[in-house]
Design a protein around this nucleic acid. Structure first.
Lengths: 141, 141
DNA sequence: ACGTTTTTTGCAACTAAGTTGCAATATAAA
DNA sequence: TTTATATTGCAACTTAGTTGCAAAAAACGT
């Protein structure tokens, strides 16, 4: 059994061809991927709906997480496999969107700041997306 | 000239019937509105496209700002009319999404926390959405 | 007040993202 | 290897949002 297949198993996801492929695409990607990105990389061997359903399964099983940028398109990135599993998701972190290349990156080294909400509001979770220039684009300008 | 009409003028937006109506809907709303919300409140007297274009105009002229929640639907809320105008937008603030009622609120009293990014990243803007229970829903549970 | 210029609106058509139901197929488990 | 269960492909659909163009409405100068 390959490493990718073990990962699927550990997240209680049955191993199939598309799932192996999509997981490997994620593990190679340095940034969050949209459905369209994955469809492009897979070629036209698999149905669009299958890709949507695979993403939903991966999400539900704690293998990937979702970021929605201001354009409203969902993007997904691998979770920290040490921290997230079927039971719980525990790698809240800041995302960075480069205004030049459009990619969204996970910033695992940036701490989530504490926010004190007005009286009466109950905190559940914080989502932060920072816009700016990424390393690569900054150097290329 | 009514107050609403003055506001439109100040933002260099020509006064028309839909615009007056949509602006008044916003000024009454206590939370961010989607296109669908506005369409519902307007009745079917105006075309969907007109509403989309009105929102875009209001956005461009600094009258409203946009928040996209994780479902990918755009919502809009009035800007602080003291701070924002045609030239510049200057009321960055935290948004709060209630998991119970689904509404998104502007939290003007919460400071945007400073974030220190990894080497090489250039900061342009920070977007924060806090999920939780709003005042009203908390009391009602 | 009147015609002209410039914006705005409605309509129709279209795109892109995402979902659902169902039958066929592939995986896992006995 | 058979059976039970989950996954896939296909077709159809929904919802959000966009574009082009002609008609209608504002604004502007006289």
């Amino acid at each position: 059994m390959t490493l990718l297949e073990q990962t699927l198993h550990q997240h209680q996801i049955r191993v199939t061809a598309v799932r192996r492929l999509i997981l490997s695409i994620f593990s190679r990607a340095g940034f969050a991927l949209s459905h369209a990105d994955i469809e492009r990389q897979l070629g036209h061997d698999y149905d669009r709906v299958t890709i949507y359903r695979t993403l939903r399964t991966f999400l539900e099983k704690g293998l990937i997480h979702k970021v929605t940028d201001d354009a409203g398109v969902a993007r997904y990135a691998l979770c920290d496999l040490q921290k997230c599993n079927v039971e719980s998701h525990a790698d809240e972190h800041v995302h960075f969107k480069c205004v030049h290349c459009g990619h969204i990156f996970c910033l695992n080294s940036v701490d989530l700041p504490p926010l004190h909400l007005p009286e009466g509001y109950v905190w559940y979770a914080t989502t932060i997306i920072v816009d700016g220039l990424c390393k690569t684009c900054k150097e290329g300008l």
